[in-house]
Structure formats: structure tokens, C-alpha cells
């Protein structure tokens, strides 16, 4: 099987896939913390808003959200480009999942830590920044890395809203010579694996590094 001629287009697609992945990860990371903290707020209204956000985006599927943002939203007068709709949908969806990770990790930090920082007269801000978050981050790591892999895989759906990512290039290449479809999609699966597997390895490495000396 000579697949070399397929590589330039697939490479272009992979670059787009990585671009969408990185941008969406940024949005999702930000939203995770925003919504995660909001879930723990003392104000009931803030808690309510963030739980509605989380339930709505976890309760409907990513692809439905993507189609809604791209095809339905223009009818309400808001037109998004494919890239904007893709990044928004991926960011909002994985942000909702991520916020649960943030929330549960903060709650998992032993209560004595909070009490000790209060006893040491730390301000709430300092307490969160220097005592709670550093410990919560270690708890978040494995779940966040899992979400990162899920997000990378999720980007394949942007091919359905006309973005020329790796999956999309496969569908294009297929139209030139349908008899090579097996080879094309086999190659694409391999390329996704090559992109996702380093994330898995990095996750294991980080887990080992950060759990060193702790049990």
C-alpha cells in the first residue's frame, strides 16, 4: 500500500484538528474553573445558573450542540463561522464536564486544610490560591487528561459543519478514489491515535510525578 500521496492533505487536516483542539481546550479549561467555582458559590442564584449550564450541556450531545450553534443560531440572528461554532460547542461541552471535575476536586481536599488556613488568618483568596488549589489540582489531573483526549476525539465532529479537519480530508480524498477508502480511513485512525496517545502517556507521567511522596 502506497499512502504517501495521501499525506499532504491529511497533514493539512491534522493541523486544523490540532488548532481546533488547542483553542477549545483553552475555552473549556477557563469555563471549567468558572463554572466549577460558581457551583460552590455561597449565592444561590450563581449556583443555579451554573448548574443549569452544566446540566444542559451534559444532558444534550456535543453533535446536537454543534449543529444547533451552526445551523439554528443564524435564524436567531447570530451567525458564527464554522471555527467559532466548533470551538464554542467543544469549549462549552467539555467546560461543563470539566466544571464537575473542578468542583469535586475542591470538595475532596480535606476540611482540616481549610480550617487550618482560617486559623492562620489567611484571606479566602490566599487560602484558595496557596492551600486548596495546589492540592485540588493534583486530584484534577487524571480526569482533565481524560477529558483532553475526549476533546481531541470530539473535534472530528467539526467535519460535519464544513470544517476541513482530518476527518473531513478523509471524506474528500475518498471522492477521488472510493476503492482506497479502507486505506484512507485506516490511515486517519492511525493519525488520531498518534495525536491522542502522547496525551495518555503524558497523563501517566504527570500522575506519577505528582503522586510521588504522597499516598
Amino acid at each position: 500500500m502506497v499512502s504517501v500521496d495521501l499525506l499532504p492533505l491529511l497533514y493539512q487536516g491534522a493541523v486544523t484538528t490540532l488548532k481546533v483542539t488547542v483553542l477549545s481546550m483553552g475555552v473549556a479549561f477557563l469555563l471549567s474553573f468558572l463554572a466549577g467555582f460558581a457551583r460552590l458559590s455561597r449565592r444561590k442564584s450563581i449556583r443555579l445558573v451554573s448548574s443549569v449550564y452544566v446540566e444542559v450541556f451534559r444532558g444534550t450531545s456535543l453533535i446536537v450542540q454543534l449543529f444547533w450553534l451552526f445551523y439554528a443560531l443564524p435564524l436567531l440572528g447570530i451567525e458564527l463561522t464554522a471555527l467559532a461554532a466548533g470551538v464554542a460547542a467543544l469549549g462549552l461541552n467539555y467546560g461543563a464536564y470539566g466544571s464537575e471535575v473542578v468542583r469535586s476536586a475542591i470538595l475532596a481536599v480535606p476540611k482540616g486544610q481549610t480550617e487550618a488556613s482560617i486559623a492562620l488568618n489567611m484571606s479566602p483568596m490566599l487560602r484558595m490560591r496557596r492551600v486548596i488549589l495546589p492540592q485540588a489540582m493534583v486530584i484534577m489531573l487524571p480526569s482533565f487528561s481524560n477529558l483532553a483526549i475526549e476533546l481531541l476525539k470530539g473535534t472530528s465532529l467539526v467535519s460535519l459543519i464544513t470544517m476541513a479537519d482530518l476527518t473531513y480530508q478523509g471524506m474528500i480524498l475518498r471522492t477521488f478514489d472510493a476503492s482506497r477508502t479502507f486505506e484512507i480511513f485506516g490511515l486517519i485512525l492511525l493519525m488520531y491515535f498518534v495525536m491522542a496517545y502522547p496525551l495518555t502517556l503524558m497523563m501517566r507521567w504527570l500522575e506519577r510525578r505528582f503522586s510521588a511522596g504522597r499516598v
Partner: peptide, 8 residues
């Protein structure tokens, strides 16, 4: 687990 359902 590391490859997208859509491509599969």
C-alpha cells in the same frame, strides 16, 4: 479508545 467514534 484513542480514536474518534465518527472515523471508526
Amino acid at each position: 479508545r484513542s480514536t474518534p467514534l465518527l472515523v471508526q
